[in-house]
Design a binder for these strands. Structure first.
Lengths: 342, 342
DNA sequence: CTGAAAGCGCTAACAC
DNA sequence: GTGTTAGCGCTTTCAG
């Protein structure tokens, strides 16, 4: 298997290697005729530019990094798959790195990764995407990045990123519970380092307010996005003088934990307790009863993030940098954990 | 942020760049004194070799690929984390690629990945690790690879790889059920493209045989490693003249599906039906009751695979290539799905 | 045991 | 519009 280099292409097309380079990189100022000759040669030889050489020489590289600190395997896999599919299509490499967002030297770690691997851009998911130190640093060094996070406040501003409108989605779920007649609704939230946590909580509070129901702080628990915290949170609720009739969980894992614990205490779901999750992860379909939740298309979200980041890295496309942002709104999915027979 | 290159290290240590290169690559024939001087400089400057440059110049690269085709997010994440932690420690890159093992051109895909990304080695998980076409191809081109798969037959032979002794583990679980008095035990297996499926089935059959119980083919179902197939499989069992009193599932996801379906039909677990899974994934702790299963340390397995692969790529370590293989034996974990109160 | 020189495949800067 | 030259950071080859 002979290695095809830029020289082979140049020779076959009868041009210089620089011209081949120009065509491959879609630079302007190559005559249409030359361009098609080169493209034909590229195709005939099945030429792919050597990534290492480009990265070594070029000011710009073709490597993105995906940084995550998330215990939710489903979420991470969806992100990864979406990013990979887009990156590979566009001849970008994707470096995937787990990290600990609470490490004191997290900014340095990010910096090391960027410089050592010469990243062209970075994709951040929560809670990293919500860490101002990291964002400030990226802005400071001028590295293109895409945040995948929660919020609609940013929409309309000049802030780039992919945003999920958890606020509205959470309000929809809350309304759903209110419509079913619940008035005492607890909220078992995840990690407040995630912007989503605040926004989901806001949606819940707004929903209650609109219905004229006072928010009871004793019914709001904050912890982390895990099954175990769902269990733990429910135990706390059990200590209250009386149980709420419904619980909104920060995500499906928490909801599954609550459901598990409710079962241990012989509490019927949804009759004695309605439970709703968030994210529509496989979790929500693998409990009994299945979980009411809010669906968000994570793979699609990731793919969109990669698209926007690639666009940011290619200023070729005429003119200045326009805002690269997009907002997804999760959809309510009603199932048996809140409504019998749904 | 100044970029630290091999020249900076050489200058600080007062040696030539070649010597630094030797130390970094663990080549023989560097005096202990020089080596420690260089290592000190490396540490002080926080030097990391530029991967692109090494890959470009060297005959050998420092990029491994991890290829997977697995819908089990927990498994993939564990593998990924284990491989990454070892690779990063040893200054290897890890390229992660999902793929479709049933694509007709899968060998060409593998070949393209290897050549285009100039991989130094490949780590394969099931079912790719069990595909003879791929293995033959890798052997043919002489690329170092590590299979992470099931089996103990290979142990003692000259075959490299990480093996999980599912056969024995499955027999242990079967014995556990037999000890509890079950005699009519069904087996709801996963995808037979996975070697683990065959081996787990073998263990089950051996267990029954030893107890003098005839194997009933009607009680053996083959499908895929998913929650949904658990549901589907259980529905099939319901069509039998009488239900088995115990079910062994191909993995925890299948077991969770069976459990889910059993609940829908008001069948008590473990009283009316004992259910056991495999893998000790988070699934097994998030059902009610929790699942009896077999525990296997996936992250550790992955780390070991990377270690062995790295060793294979560094023949420096005196002498010829000795066998690189390791065997893990999953451990029985008894929980409430088979034994009340466990 | 150690160093000097060449060059991997490509792009940036400057010619023409 | 296109070609020439230099060199990214490293390993390889060959001298010492």
């Amino acid at each position: 298997m002979k290695k095809i280099t830029i020289h082979d292409v140049a020779e076959l097309a009868g041009v210089s290697i620089k011209t081949v380079s120009r065509v491959v990189n879609n630079e302007a100022s190559v005559s249409t005729n030359t361009k098609s000759k080169v493209n034909a040669a590229v195709k005939e030889l099945n030429y792919k530019p050597n990534v290492s050489a480009r990265n070594l020489r070029g000011s710009q590289t073709f490597i993105f990094g995906m940084l995550y600190d998330n215990t939710n395997a489903y979420f991470v896999m969806d992100m990864q798959n979406g990013l990979l599919s887009e990156c590979l299509d566009q001849n970008y490499e994707l470096l995937i790195r787990p990290c600990n967002s609470r490490a004191p030297d997290i900014v340095k770690q990010v910096s090391d990764l960027i410089h050592h691997s010469r990243l062209a851009g970075l994709i951040l998911t929560s809670p990293l995407a919500d860490n101002p130190d990291i964002i400030d640093y990226l802005r400071e060094i001028g590295l293109p990045y895409m945040r995948i996070t929660s919020g609609k406040a940013a929409i309309g501003t000049c802030e780039d990123g992919i945003f999920v409108d958890d606020d509205s989605a959470s309000m929809h779920i809350t309304n759903h519970l209110l419509t079913l007649g619940h008035t005492k609704i607890a909220y078992v939230a995840g990690d407040i380092a995630h912007q989503a946590t605040t926004n989901r909580l806001d949606g819940y509070i707004k929903g209650l307010n609109k219905a004229g129901i006072a928010v009871d702080e004793a019914l709001i628990l904050k912890g982390e996005y895990s099954f175990d915290f769902g269990v733990e949170g429910f135990k706390q609720l059990l200590k209250l003088p009386s149980l709420p009739t419904a619980v909104l969980a920060g995500n499906d894992e928490i909801a599954a934990g609550i459901l598990y614990c409710a079962r241990l205490h012989n509490i019927s779901v949804p009759e004695d307790l309605a439970i709703a999750g968030f994210e529509n992860s496989p979790f929500s379909r693998q409990t009994w009863p299945k979980l009411t939740t809010a669906s968000q298309p994570n793979t699609e979200i990731a793919r969109r993030a990669a698209q926007l980041l690639i666009k940011m890295c290619r200023p070729d496309t005429t003119g200045e940098h326009d805002i690269s942002q997009h907002c997804f709104i999760p959809e309510l999915v009603v199932r048996g954990s809140t409504q019998k027979g749904a």
